[in-house]
């Protein structure tokens, strides 16, 4: 039995009177694709924000590779090897694609700002190295065409890929994808599906994904966790979860209400 890469233990968070996440526990194994599903307001993105340190849990904790991370600031968590994307794309709009990806290398920098000021030899070598590593990601996701374009002018689908590329540039151990297919057409969604599978198989990165498109979820996920109103409903393979009565109820409402 291998140790879990990420472990959420009795995670709860409360905003005012609202319990956005209520006593959720789960484990993510190394090199699996783990999906979080659930209707709007189920607390999926909140769990991402808890993992990446943007929110502090009210109780419970998150452990990554055996280390409790839920009291660490976001930049430290990022340096441990957790990368993420955002539901509404949070790219650096007024920078080029290349610059965005290079920011992804930030957590691997080892030069100080005063060295940057003089652009010393070590900075130069590190820059060439970064540039080389970023180029690999560009190749992997096929972004060659957009390398020097400003993000602000790119179509939505490409921006989605750029955000994925930026996260991959960090060479993370785990990747959190927040609705990778939202706003994409079926063709683009298929592409994203292949890419996510490649990320797991070729790069060996563990993926946690929040997703609404059940087709995509069942195609790539190893396991699925269904949530509703901040609570766990079901955990298992995609088929198991989809067949779970609680999940059907959460999505479609109860039978009595359907009578109206």
């Amino acid at each position: 039995m291998t140790a879990a890469l990420l472990e959420a233990r009795h995670l709860s968070v409360q905003f005012g009177g609202l319990k956005a996440v209520n006593d959720v526990s789960f484990e993510v194994w190394p090199n699996e694709i783990f999906s979080l599903i659930g209707p709007n307001g189920a607390g999926k993105t909140t769990i991402f924000n808890l993992i990446s340190g943007l929110y502090r849990p009210t109780s419970g904790e998150v452990a990554f590779a055996g280390e409790v991370i839920s009291r660490m600031p976001p930049h430290v968590i990022a340096r441990l090897g957790i990368a993420r994307t955002f539901q509404n794309i949070e790219l650096f709009e007024h920078a080029t694609v290349l610059q965005n990806l290079l920011v992804g290398r930030h957590c691997h920098r080892h030069t100080a700002w005063w060295q940057d000021l003089f652009f010393t030899g070590s900075v130069r070598r590190a820059e060439v190295e970064f540039r080389h590593q970023v180029e690999e990601v560009i190749d992997f996701l096929g972004l060659q065409h957009y390398r020097d374009s400003l993000v602000a002018g790119l179509p939505y689908g490409v921006r989605k890929v750029v955000e994925l590329a930026r996260a991959l540039s960090m060479r993370p151990r785990m990747l959190l994808l927040d609705e990778p297919s939202s706003g994409l057409n079926t063709e683009e969604t298929d592409d994203i599906g292949f890419r996510i599978a490649d990320i797991k198989h070729d790069l060996g990165i563990t993926v946690i994904m929040v997703e609404h498109d059940m087709g995509l979820v069942s195609r790539v996920s190893d396991r699925v966790l269904a949530l509703n109103l901040g609570q766990e409903l079901a955990l298992g393979t995609a088929e198991e979860v989809q067949a779970h009565p609680g999940v059907i109820e959460a999505y479609l409402g109860t039978a009595e209400l359907d009578d109206v």
């Binding site: 943007l54 976001p74 007024h94 920011v103 930030h106 957590c107 960090m170």
Partner: peptide
């Protein structure tokens, strides 16, 4: 400048 949240999540 462009996004504080994602800057943090990039390890800045």
């Amino acid at each position: 400048r462009d996004s504080e949240v994602s800057a943090q999540s990039m390890g800045i």
